[in-house]
Design a protein around this nucleic acid. Structure first.
Lengths: 360, 360
DNA sequence: GTTAGCACTCTTAATTACTGAGTGCTAATA
DNA sequence: TATTAGCACTCAGTAATTAAGAGTGCTAAC
């Protein structure tokens, strides 16, 4: 038989790897050489395939659960697959429609958009959908409202220009007259409106100090009130839907995986923070409109080591404000997921922009 | 030997049942006659115990997983146990302290109290803690704030007298001047403040109609705005923490139980509604300060059939506003749980009252 | 360079046998 | 008459054995 060029060899190897990953994604079972030999596609005997497989294993793309088992892809293989082999799949028309409906139906509050988004992600992916909501830090204050609850208690309501509302109860040592409150409210609004939350937190003292001469007695109150209010803004939260989708996957039925998952879910609190850190690092290679993929042990978080993340940022105006995506098993239909997440990210961005109205 | 009176027989039988349930709660394994015979407590031979056990089984208090296994309690047995045998256990001093600290540390917003409560319940029970937050229906409106987002969009912020804040974005067909907004705001506040949300929703048309003569053009806007805002109040939500505690219990490791649990957790949305319906029925026999216990199949919800609920209402002022409690396996330490839930319910009520300030 | 063939490995499932916990019953006992 | 000792019996759980099968690695032929 004729000699193959190195390029041809490599090409064949690549095709084989692709076939293996495909198959493994479909079935979740290790794939053997015999099966691939029958899959007409590449016209090779099982023996040849075995040889190539051995090479691939040496190079770190495949593993052996045990001697007499087929091969299964390593994280490195998935990474290669995602980077080079995946072709962006167009979302089925039906799904696109569904997404659109979802958003037209209930775009009212920003919270609802996000909740609804995580659900949509979960339903369409059949895995777990998540949305990390915008952090307040960078957004600007649109309005600050003081609502007296009783003599010594005031509810402070903050509205950001992204339409997010945060509230906090502040207590005074001594009763505070309605008049004082309303002038304080006016003053605070004048000083703070239009500034970013970060800015407010970092330089609020200065601003208030400047006002000190004029309103001596108001100063302490206002300062106390503002500082108590604004130190809450770094709380992060998370929308997470369809955790059961993963839990009930056959791959995760054993004790080991299960406990990792449960551990992960129980920390809902930190999870948002973690995802944010995990995913907002250095800018992704912008191959699929900002969608990025983290596979298995590429995730720092130990509990994620058997899972993959497909994520994307979403934006209000030009500003990336949050992250959304899906969590699924390593063997997932990457191409569909990437296109799903990408599409939803842009839909959400659209919805939020409409909601917030124009550039901030 | 001397003849035992029926009363004595019954007493012995009861003691035995108690011992069996105790043991089963501790170990989760069926208990056999031999074991009970050695437990000095009741001075009987295993044979006698077997006889009594057989009786108890006939009466429906015990079952046999299979011929050669010990007995395990039925739902009926648990019910009996809870109703008659449980003695209110005093919470360990350490736990009480912990609870107090928890609340002093972060009673700021009502939401935080509730979140923190569900966590505390979970941590102290080692099961799953839940809190169904107050519904708005019965609470009264303290303040309504309009925050203009742009020409055609207004953020409506409602503050209830329980300190709960709800917001919604309302869109106008045509631009709306700031002046109109502020007079509308004043008008709405005048009409609506102090009324219950239900009342507002049910009779708002009349009130606004009355105002029609004076402010013809404002009427449509205000009506639209108010009706759009107030139809959101029947959404219910739920705080749920420590689901993993149950998931990782040895009793629930098998496929069957697992899938029930997952199903349950995935419906977080409806779960609040369901718990509310499940638990707010006819008033409980007021045996433990309003704490009630639902065992296994006593719950309507099929997914709860292998679980027990220990719950209590909590109150603001005299008004019962929500429900909290724990979800755990049927074999739980009922006495500790009952006292825990009872104690936390009253602590929460206290915290909320302090937070809201005085009678509403 | 490719392939057929074969020995070898190791998992998985099925079968079998064994152990022991716990019962139910009967006959002896106080 | 209530209790108990004793014993045969049942059945889940475990371990050991076996058998089947999948898949590999290697070698020799093409």
């Amino acid at each position: 038989m004729r000699t193959l060029s190195i390029a041809e060899q490599e090409d064949r190897k690549r095709k084989l790897l692709q076939a293996i990953i495909h198959q493994y994604i479909k079935t979740g079972k290790p794939v053997g050489s015999a099966f691939l030999a029958e899959e007409d596609k590449l016209d090779l005997s099982s023996a040849t395939i075995r040889n190539v497989m051995a090479e691939l294993e040496n190079e770190g793309y495949l593993t052996h659960p045990h001697t007499s088992a087929g091969r299964e892809p390593t994280d490195k293989a998935y990474r290669y697959y995602v980077d080079t082999l995946v072709e962006l799949q167009h979302l089925a028309v039906m799904e696109e429609q569904r997404i659109r409906q979802e958003y037209e139906a209930r775009i009212r509050e920003i919270e609802q958009v996000l909740l609804s988004t995580s659900k949509t992600l979960s339903v369409l992916s059949h895995y777990t959908g998540f949305v990390v909501p915008p952090k307040l830090e960078e957004t600007k204050l649109r309005h600050l409202q003081l609502v007296p609850l009783d003599d010594c208690r005031v509810l402070v309501v903050l509205v950001s220009d992204t339409g997010i509302v945060k509230q906090r109860v502040v207590m005074f040592e001594s009763p505070c007259a309605p008049d004082t409150l309303s002038s304080m409210s006016k003053m605070l609004n004048d000083y703070l409106r239009g500034r970013s939350f970060n800015e407010v937190r970092d330089s609020i003292l200065d601003h208030l100090a400047a006002a000190r001469q004029r309103h001596e007695d108001m100063f302490d109150l206002a300062h106390m009130l503002a500082s108590q209010t604004f130190d809450m803004i770094d709380e992060s939260s998370l929308y997470l839907e369809g955790a059961g989708n993963i839990l009930s996957l056959p791959d995760f039925q054993d004790q080991e995986h299960m406990s990792h998952l449960i551990h992960l879910l129980d920390q809902r609190q930190n999870l948002g923070e973690l995802l944010l850190r995990e995913l907002s690092g250095p800018a992704a290679e912008d191959k699929w409109k900002g969608v990025r993929v983290k596979i298995g042990s590429e995730n720092k978080l130990a509990d994620l080591k058997d899972l993959s993340l497909v994520s994307s940022t979403y934006a209000i105006g030009d500003k990336k404000v949050g992250i959304l995506g899906i969590i699924g098993p390593k063997r997932m239909e990457y191409s569909r997921m990437i296109s799903l997440v990408g599409h939803i990210a842009s839909t959400v961005s659209g919805a939020l922009n409409k909601l917030v109205g124009g550039k901030s």
